[in-house]
Design a protein around this nucleic acid. Structure first.
Length: 261
DNA sequence: CAGGAGTAATCTAGTCGCGT
DNA sequence: ACGCGACTAGATTACTCCTG
């Protein structure tokens, strides 16, 4: 599969956790990005920001992250947003934001978890800058970026990690790595979502999205066993072969279960 | 069916303001 | 004061739809 190029889209907005929750409340199924923009504008929920800014947030952040695949992510998150604590919700946001912005996903997989595995306590914006410059050299961007864009995008990578709970928040060029572990809700959501996308049980274990949480195949298998203890799936593994019994029939049903906790 | 006007989506960078 | 991250908007590219 052809990988999408790195873009600077992240600078239209980082985690936007609260903004996303507000937009989820305003959004209803089948609503387009521009309709959402209009409604958000008229709602008065965003008095601090300009209409232009709101357009950026909706069309460059909310839509690419949550209005893909006919708005399925938004549909699910809307249901879960009201019930789940923010700490769990941000893990799902992390998945969708990383899918929308490959540069973020690659950064978390290749830099964040490598630093963690190496025993480091922090990730600095210099680490991020080195990653960005390497990406440019490797042709991951469609063109070379200006000095200031490199500087800002590097900062946005760590800033976004901070918004999603992987790194310490606050204004600093080197952020401390926080304890970050996938929640059962997130692993259930991700496992089922990959399953309903038609991915086979064994391939699910190797999917890149787990690596956002630092999980390799064997770790994912452990997560799946946890899920089976919770009664969310049935798992049979013998050697290299894994078979999963999927108890929920669609994402709607799963989200109902997850929302009840 | 070519072309082009109008519009939407996407990409990039200037600037502002806050916290240290 | 200054560095960093956030906000905003201009520039560019892609798309749509109309007209001759």
């Amino acid at each position: 599969m052809e990988r999408a190029p790195y873009t600077t889209q992240l600078q239209a907005g980082l985690g936007l956790v609260n903004e996303t929750r507000a937009l989820l409340e305003l959004w209803s199924p089948s609503m387009s990005a521009s309709q959402l923009h209009d409604i958000a504008l008229k709602s008065g929920r965003f008095p601090e920001i300009t209409a232009r800014r709101l357009r950026n947030i909706v069309s460059e952040c909310f839509a690419p992250r949550y209005l893909t695949a006919d708005g399925e992510p938004a549909l699910h998150l809307k249901k879960l947003s009201a019930e789940l604590p923010a700490s769990e919700l941000v893990q799902l946001m992390l998945i969708f934001t990383s899918r929308a912005n490959p540069i973020l996903g690659d950064f978390i997989r290749d830099v964040y978890w490598a630093r963690y595995a190496g025993g480091y306590q922090e990730v600095s914006s210099d680490d991020a800058r080195a990653f960005v410059e390497r990406g440019i050299d490797d042709g991951k961007t469609s063109k070379r970026w200006s000095e200031s864009t490199i500087r800002r995008v590097s900062a946005y990578l760590t800033g976004c990690c901070a918004d999603y709970g992987l790194l310490e928040r606050g204004l600093r060029s080197s952020r401390r790595i926080l304890p970050f572990r996938i929640s059962a809700t997130t692993s259930a959501y991700l496992a089922y979502e990959l399953h309903f996308r038609g991915i086979g049980d064994n391939a699910i274990l190797n999917h890149d999205d787990w690596k956002l949480f630092g999980l390799e195949r064997d770790d994912v298998l452990e997560e799946m066993k946890r899920l089976s203890l919770k009664g969310l799936i049935i798992i049979q593994s013998a050697g290299d072969v894994v078979r999963v019994g999927w108890k929920q029939h669609d994402m709607e049903e799963l989200c109902d279960v997850l929302a009840k906790g």
